[in-house]
Every structure is written in C-alpha cells, then in structure tokens.
C-alpha cells in the first residue's frame, strides 16, 4: 500500500514537472512566438491590395509572423468576403486583419470572430463595430479634406462647378472621404458642388456616369474622384470627350492614372501608402498580441503632380513591380 502510494507520488511529481516545464517553455518562448495572421482584403487582384500584402509580409519577416493573403477576387463581393472571414475564423489564426467591403454588413461577422476569440484589426475600410483592435489606414476625412484644399489651391479659378465621382455609396471610406471633401469645400462657397455620382468601383460605370455629368453640366470646371477606379473612369471619360479644360483631382494613382496625369487630365493625385498600411497592420497586431496597448494608426498621404510622379519616393507606390 505504502509502496503504491510512493509510486503514485513519483508519477504525480513527474507529471507536474513536465507540465511545469511545458508551461514555462511556452511562457518563455512567448517573446519568440510566431503569430499567424489572415489578411483579408477587398479584392486580391488589385495592385493596391497586393502592395498592402507586400507591406504586411515585410512586417511579418521583421516580427517573425506569417501572413495569409485572402479575399474575394473583386471588390463588390461582400458576401464572399463574409464567407472568407468565417472560413478564416474556423482556421483560428492569431488575428484577422480585415479591410471591410461594407461598413454595416461586415459588423456582425466581425463580432462573431471576436466572440470566437479571434481579434480583428481593421485596415483601409472600417466596420460598424467598436470591439476591433483598431483601425490602421488613411484618415479618410483628412484625405477628402486635403483633396478639397488641393482642388481649391490649383484650380486657378474663383468660381465654378465641381463634380464628385465616388465609389460605393454606403461604404465607410466613401462616406468619410466625401464628408471630408465637402467640409473642405465649405470654406470656398464660390464653388458649386454637384450631386455625387457613385460608380461602385467599376471603371466603365464611372466613365459612363462622368460622361453624363460632363454633358449635363457645361460649366463643370473640376471633378474630384474619391478612389482609383472613380478617378480612372472619370479620366477616361474626360479623355474621350477631349475635355482637357476640366481638371481631375484624384485619390490614389495607378499607372493608368499616371498616364492621364502625364496627359494633363489629372491635375493632382493624393497617394495613400498601402505598403505602410500592410506593414503597420501586422506591427499593430503583433503588439496587440504581445499585450501592449495599441490604438489605430493613420498612414501617410502624399500629394503628387506630373512633376513629382517619377520621384523615387512615389514611383513604387504608383508603379508596383510586376512579376
């Protein structure tokens, strides 16, 4: 009996030691632990999101993390993004980095992910949910505001009509950029602002809507385009109509937009820094998981015109490496 008790005690001590060592090992290696993140973007095929991914990967190598690049192939596919988010949650990454396709529709799936114990960090486009880690990306109100300033500063006219081409009407960045733009334009009441047209991030649709806007408003002197597709569509429309007199002020600059800028159609473009966005998002998520207090972070905004288009600093943001 006594012998049996002794053996039991020895086994118990052994188990406790192994458990303790394992626990300590895990705790001790916590600083070196590698995190797995799922980066869910709006559209995996777009250069913008590819650049976000590159930034995220650069941060991942610095922070010893791995990043999985996910998302629907096209931006409007909100339902598909929700199901991708759900799949991601089932795979239990350490955190999900999400650019929400829709401010409202993604709120519940994001809450579901948080309830399942997976923290969610928002990038580029926020969601109607305050339980996320935070938001990393461009300050969209400031971006809209800056666009208004640039427009008023470079238009060279004291009055005129200004059109806005936006993308998805209800989308969070569209709402905020437009709000920022309109509040910036309020300082210059001499400019009349037309009703915003929404091209749904569809270049052809934006082109069509812009053409109609131009034809319907003969006195139109400038157009503010609130994202890359809106700007491209508007630029194509103005190019086809041969209306070099209408200045286009754009947010984001793709190689095609660069071409239109060189042609003089796009006057000013405001650049976001998707690379930085990706980098900061992984950095923020790592810091959050390591128990540091984190908050959102705004990424840089650059202003380019035709003369600075090929500056080293902006070249890579506008013309991504193709492989």
């Amino acid at each position: 009996m006594k012998r049996r008790l002794t053996i039991f005690l020895i086994i118990a001590v052994f188990v406790v030691i192994i458990g303790g060592v394992r626990y300590l090992w895990r705790a001790g290696s916590g600083t070196k632990k590698s995190y797995n993140f799922d980066l869910i973007v709006k559209s995996t095929n777009m250069d913008y999101w590819k650049t976000v991914n590159e930034g995220a990967l650069a941060a991942a190598s610095a922070y010893n993390a791995t990043v999985k690049y996910k998302g629907p192939p096209t931006e409007e596919n909100c339902k598909q993004q929700i199901s991708i988010l759900k799949e991601s949650v089932a795979e239990r990454p350490d955190a999900v980095i999400l650019a929400a396709s829709d401010y409202n529709l993604l709120a519940e799936p994001v809450q579901d992910a948080i309830d399942a114990g997976i923290p969610v960090l928002m990038i580029d486009s926020n969601v109607k949910n305050t339980n996320t880690i935070g938001y990393v990306g461009t300050d969209n109100i400031k971006l809209g505001n800056m666009l208004a300033q640039q427009l008023c500063g470079h238009i060279g006219k004291t009055s005129g009509t200004v059109g806005i081409t936006s993308f998805v009407k209800e989308s969070w960045p569209a709402v905020r950029r437009e709000a920022g733009f309109r509040s910036g334009m309020e300082l210059h009441p001499e400019f009349k602002i037309l009703k915003t047209v929404y091209g749904g991030s569809d270049i052809e649709k934006t082109e069509y809507l812009t053409s109609r806007m131009v034809l319907a408003n003969p006195g139109l002197s400038a157009v503010a385009a609130l994202n890359a597709q809106s700007a491209t569509g508007a630029a194509r429309a103005l190019n086809k109509l041969g209306r070099n007199d209408i200045q286009l002020y754009a947010i984001d600059c793709t190689p095609e937009e660069a071409m239109y800028m060189e042609k003089g159609i796009i006057k000013i473009a405001l650049l976001q820094n998707p690379y930085q966005m990706g980098y900061y998002s992984v950095e923020t998520a790592c810091n959050y998981l390591r128990g540091k207090k984190v908050s959102g972070r705004n990424t840089d905004i650059y202003t380019v015109n035709v003369n600075t288009l090929f500056d080293d600093k902006y070249e890579q943001l506008i013309f991504p490496f193709k492989s």
């Binding site: 650049t51 650069a58 690379y275 930085q276 980098y279």
Partner: peptide
C-alpha cells in the same frame, strides 16, 4: 531594398 517603402516612410531597418 525590399523594404524600400518603409525606408521612404521613415522606418529604417
């Protein structure tokens, strides 16, 4: 530099 973007953004390795 693979992290050229970060260098431009002021984050130097």
């Amino acid at each position: 530099h693979p992290k050229q973007q970060m260098i431009y953004a002021g984050i130097m390795p």
